[in-house]
């Protein structure tokens, strides 16, 4: 069971590593790295679903009878685009966060946030 399905064990292990990085790290960039790892693991999972034993690339050629399933690949092309967009928005936010707080550590950002809530009495003045 484990032997024939080892790809799933590997992809799910990679997913959990990614998720653990997201949860355990306070650095915003590292969080995004973990998130990307998590997403890529899911992409690998989808792609492995499309593999047919002995199948070649799904392009019709002379003399080939079995092809790998192309649909998961197409799906994951879409999901990769979504992943890239998520990472881009995330990095853009990190840049703006660094510009306004001068830090990439979540706890330092929170601390500065609490201190400026005490000093500025009206919002809109901050930043």
């Amino acid at each position: 069971m484990i032997g024939s399905h080892y790809v799933y064990w590997l992809t799910f292990a990679l997913m959990m590593i990614g998720l653990y990085v997201v949860i355990s790290h306070g650095n915003l960039i590292k969080k995004l790295i973990g998130l990307s790892l998590f997403q890529v693991a899911v992409f690998l999972f989808y792609i492995s679903l499309g593999k047919v034993d002995g199948g070649t690339a799904p392009i019709i050629t002379e003399g080939t009878q079995t092809y790998s399933h192309p649909l998961p690949h197409v799906l994951i092309l879409t999901a990769i685009v979504v992943g890239v967009a998520t990472l881009a928005v995330g990095l853009a936010l990190v840049v703006r966060l660094f510009e306004s707080y001068g830090s990439l550590e979540e706890d330092e950002i929170l601390q500065r946030d609490i201190s400026d809530r005490d000093t500025t009495d009206r919002d809109g003045v901050a930043s």
Partner: peptide
Amino acid sequence: GRRRRALLAAFRYLVVGSV
């Protein structure tokens, strides 16, 4: 949002929402 905390709110939502 007007305050800089909005950026942190958006980032946290991004991480949790993407997961």
